[in-house]
Nucleic acid binder design. Structure first.
Length: 935
DNA sequence: CAGCTCACG
DNA sequence: GACGTACGTGAGCTGG
């Protein structure tokens, strides 16, 4: 071996790499790499230890040469000597395995020699290198606390415990073994080692072994003169086990003749290459260490490969300085825009917000776009600002200093559509729709509103202002301060650009910060899958439905309005005559005065304000007693409701460009996971009465097409049967039996055949009552029976289906202990107030019982909706509406049958494979020229 | 802007 | 023994 470059004055450090790995593994929590979940806890600890070692090993004692030594594999030449050597070592844990090669990579990244040799233990390599270094006149420090290495200490070789920072010399070894290093192997051979499964001599430990060795000089002399030992038992043991002791000696004696195929000079210490090292650490996503290394080498840290996160698994809210709106940039030229877009490309993620002229995405014009790629860094691109309306005709001129809309969108489009760049929005469906109308399909997306919803449903609402206030302690500037309110309200286009920049860029930065706050919380809250499969995909699906819109027959509605007006006028006259005075039929206050004071009728219910209620069920009771006025009022109200809410209002929602009505669904509105439809609400179009149903005749398909409706049959009861595990209910659903008749039959012991409809109705009411968290009061009111009787029904029901009560108790307990309940798909619904006392607790309890059922149904139809666009791709058909358990499509006549068959298939299997239900899901379908016919 | 009422699942 | 209740929504109207 050529050893130029190593000799007198050289100082070799030999680092016990395998020991580092195991120490790191056991000392650290099981960290995983954020981007892909690869376990890296041991690698992280290993790197930190190496980094600390490098920093500590400076100064006068600094090594001239160094190497990190690893065990190559578990089987070594010692197994040839003794088959059971280290046999009781457990296999390394599964999550540690993939980390072994990574620690080798780490070693090389630190520019340290990385050594492992097949069939040899790290200890033997260390021993061999130590011997060679000593022969060449150098000194050696072994970085390890392994007692098996202590036999090497002395004569220019010492050890350093890397954890305690304590050096181990001849004296420390004597303290531990009672002998000096050259006899340590003899002592170990006698004492044996349980950890490595070295047998040794039975009944002899370190103390006795040291005593014997000190008395006889060395192991061979001891074994040769074993007859002389005074203690009979000890003597016999040594005689009987001489061979075993000699084998043990060969096991513990380190081999200084490991074949080494490299020159000592190659171990010369070299500084790490900062770029190589930081690249590796960055790959591992060790942010803190990367930054530390960068700081040391005064180099810029590489851009993280994944969103900035802490290295711990516990999500902590990032702490940032307060927002500083003064730094916001207004982008007024293409050069600046291109620079920002380049920075965003490098970053791979950006918060985006659009400003427009209206809250109605289908009519709003784009006014500007704001971007935030990092805390404290946000920009606004004004695109459609106009001069304020100085006079009646002069206003509306395009403001100077804006990039042309066309040019800016052409530059933005590739970034907003780049699959490698994540766009973050708050209520991103809004921005998605706006941009879609300008030819941009924004993807991929994250939505801070939906993140908050997945984490905190039913705890609070998820508007940006509220979240900013709660989670980042920031009060957003109210939009009213810019555009005013009421009659004098202006549009965002008229807001001066400097003020607009401040507002819009702030929104983007708040969105960015909310994302940093919420996104890391998903795993620990176990709602990652909920967010990714039930929330986020809804954005694009709903945007498509909303933009498609539904056609209505405005003439039909207007004709109905006219007829309703006539009928109302007639009823109004009759009511006035019956009351003996004129009054406003729409005023509950005036009506109450007439009914309860003038006519002396006895009110039953009181509202919040203490006024007696004039609600329908109260009026119905009066009408049943033969009073004419309440009957007229009921008729009038029914028509008034239909007219004002539907026949008058719906035509005003027709979009002048598309000629259709475009509702908007809120994804994060309802506590349970249901959607809510607004502007207009198309989820409460009448259907229960014949007259109301005529309004559905105004929902139509264009010539050559049909409306197709598919709805889940009894989905909530089916889910209840599954979740509460009620055999009788499950069986009935499996056999396709009339579920309410079955319930009645089981409860009252009457045959299903020829059942009294009244009995079935009662069972039906109870079935629904159970879903809502039944009470005798509620049931008695619903069925108009005495409370005691209602209580009897409930008792009978619980006796017959005891699983129901178990479900209710279980769910209540879950709500109390966790503060939330979950749907079958893992959606979290919080249950505030469940542990409070008083009447509020009753409501909270019923809500908690209902939430998993209603929420699971909501999850199922969401899954169906998400799969639907792909499933019906190619068919001349579009999904238009969702009404909780119903989906409405528009399809060409020729495609109706295939649509029904495909959509039914998707809906009935929507829960699979995430959840398997013990009851079948059944979907009914219909088609027709109008929604009324399709139903 | 709150309360009442009522449309839907 | 009394409290006050069915679960989940949105919208129009009245009246302070």
């Amino acid at each position: 071996m050529n050893d130029e470059g190593f000799g007198k004055g050289s100082h070799l450090h030999l680092i016990d790499g395998s020991a580092f790995i195991f120490r790191a593994y056991h000392a650290l929590p099981p960290l995983t790499r954020k981007s892909d979940g690869l376990p890296v806890g041991a690698v992280a600890g290993f790197c930190n230890m190496i980094w600390k070692y490098i920093n500590d090993a400076r100064g006068p004692d600094a090594p001239t040469h160094a190497a990190v030594i690893f065990d190559h594999s578990s089987k070594t030449f010692r197994n040839e000597i003794y088959g059971d050597y280290k046999a009781n070592r457990p296999e390394p844990p599964e999550e540690l395995r993939p980390q072994f090669p990574l620690t080798r990579e780490a070693t090389r990244a630190f520019n340290l020699a990385c050594i492992e040799i097949r069939d040899y233990e790290a200890d033997d390599i260390i021993a061999t290198l130590a011997c060679q270094a000593r022969e060449l006149g150098g000194t050696v420090t072994i970085i390890s606390s392994d007692k098996d290495l202590m036999q090497l200490v002395g004569d220019g070789v010492d050890m350093l415990d890397p954890i305690k920072g304590k050096s181990i010399t001849r004296d420390e070894v004597f303290e531990k073994f009672g002998v000096y290093p050259d006899r340590v192997a003899d002592v170990q051979a006698l004492a044996g080692d349980a950890v490595d499964n070295v047998p040794g001599a039975p009944g002899i430990g370190i103390k006795t072994a040291a005593q014997l060795i000190n008395e006889y000089g060395d192991l061979e002399s001891l074994l040769a003169r074993a007859e002389e030992i005074k203690q009979p038992k000890r003597r016999q043991t040594l005689i009987d086990h001489a061979e075993q002791i000699r084998i043990s000696k060969r096991l513990v004696q380190l081999d200084c003749k490991t074949p080494i195929d490299f020159a000592m000079a190659t171990l010369e210490v070299k500084d790490p290459d900062p770029a190589v090292l930081m690249d590796f650490l960055n790959q591992m996503e060790f942010r803190t260490l990367t930054n530390r290394v960068a700081e040391r080498f005064k180099a810029a840290p590489p851009e993280p490969v994944a969103p900035a996160k802490t290295e711990t698994s516990a999500p902590a809210a990032p702490q940032f300085p307060p927002l500083n709106c003064e730094n916001y940039v207004t982008i007024r030229d293409m050069d600046t825009l291109r620079q920002w877009l380049d920075a965003i490309r490098d970053k791979g993620v950006v918060a985006v917000d659009t400003e427009t002229t209206s809250l109605d995405e289908m009519q709003a014009d784009l006014v500007g776009v704001s971007l935030c790629p990092e805390v404290g860094m946000a920009a606004y691109i004004p695109l459609g600002h106009v001069e304020g309306t100085a006079d009646l005709f002069g206003g509306g001129a395009r403001t100077e200093g804006q990039i042309s809309m066309e040019e800016a969108l052409a530059a933005l489009k590739p970034v907003l559509e780049d699959p490698a760049i994540l766009k973050i929005g708050h209520n991103a469906k809004y921005d998605w729709k706006i941009l879609a109308r300008y030819g941009i399909r924004m993807a991929p997306l994250d939505d801070t509103m939906l993140l908050s919803y997945a984490l905190n449903a039913a705890l609070h609402n998820h508007g940006m202002d509220e979240l900013a206030q709660t989670y980042i302690g920031h009060r957003c500037q109210p939009i009213k301060e810019l555009i005013g309110a009421g009659k004098n309200q202006i549009t965002f286009a008229q807001v001066p650009i400097d003020r607009a920049t401040r507002y819009a860029a702030e929104d983007a930065e708040v969105t960015w910060r909310l994302w940093q706050h919420f996104k890391p919380q998903l795993p620990a809250a176990q709602v990652t899958t909920v967010y990714e499969t039930l929330e986020r995909p809804m954005i694009e699906v709903l945007a498509g439905m909303e933009m498609a819109g539904v056609q209505i027959d405005s003439d039909h509605l207007r004709a109905m309005s006219g007829a309703f007006a006539q009928k109302m006028a007639q009823l109004e006259d009759e009511a006035h005559a019956l009351a003996g005075c004129k009054f406003n039929l729409g005023s509950t206050k005036q009506l109450g005065d007439i009914l309860f004071n003038q006519m002396g009728l006895a009110g039953t219910k009181a509202g919040k304000s203490g006024a007696l209620s004039t609600s329908a069920d109260v009026l119905e009771d009066f009408a049943a007693e033969g009073h004419e006025l309440p009957a007229r009022i009921l008729d009038w109200r029914g028509i008034s409701k239909l007219k004002s809410t539907y026949t008058d209002a719906l035509p005003t929602y027709v979009n002048p460009e598309t000629g259709r009505v475009h509702t908007s669904y809120s994804i994060a509105g309802a506590a349970t996971g249901r959607l809510a439809s607004t502007d207009p609400n198309l989820q409460n179009i009448p259907v229960r009465t014949e007259e109301g149903r005529r309004i559905r005749e105004a929902f139509i398909a264009p010539e050559g097409r049909k409306l197709v409706s598919l709805d889940y049959s009894q989905i909530e009861l089916r889910i209840l049967a599954h979740m509460a595990d009620i055999p009788a209910l499950k069986q009935a659903f499996s056999e396709g039996i009339d579920i309410h008749a079955m319930t009645a039959s089981q409860m009252f012991g009457v045959p299903v055949e020829g059942m009294d409809p009244m009995i079935r109705r009662r069972a039906k009411a109870i079935n629904f009552g159970v879903i809502y968290g039944i009470s005798s009061f509620g049931l008695s009111r619903n069925l108009r029976i005495p409370r005691a009787e209602a209580q009897e029904f409930i008792d009978t029901y619980f006796k017959r289906f005891p699983e129901i009560r178990a479900y209710m108790d279980r769910t209540t307990r879950e709500a109390k202990t966790q503060g939330f309940v979950r749907t079958l798909f893992g959606r979290r619904i919080h249950t505030p107030g469940i542990s409070s006392s008083g009447p509020a607790a009753g409501g909270a309890r019923r809500a908690a019982i209902n939430a998993p059922i209603q929420g699971t149904a909501a999850d199922i139809i969401r899954r169906a909706m998400i799969r639907m666009p792909k499933a019906i791709e190619g068919l001349p058909a579009k999904m238009l509406l969702q009404v909780h358990d119903e989906l409405v499509f528009e399809a060409e006549d020729s495609a109706v049958e295939s649509l029904i068959s495909i959509a039914r298939e998707i809906m009935e299997n929507a829960h699979i494979p995430a959840v398997h239900l013990s009851v079948p899901l059944v979907v009914d379908a219909g088609a027709g020229r109008t929604w009324a016919e399709a139903h």
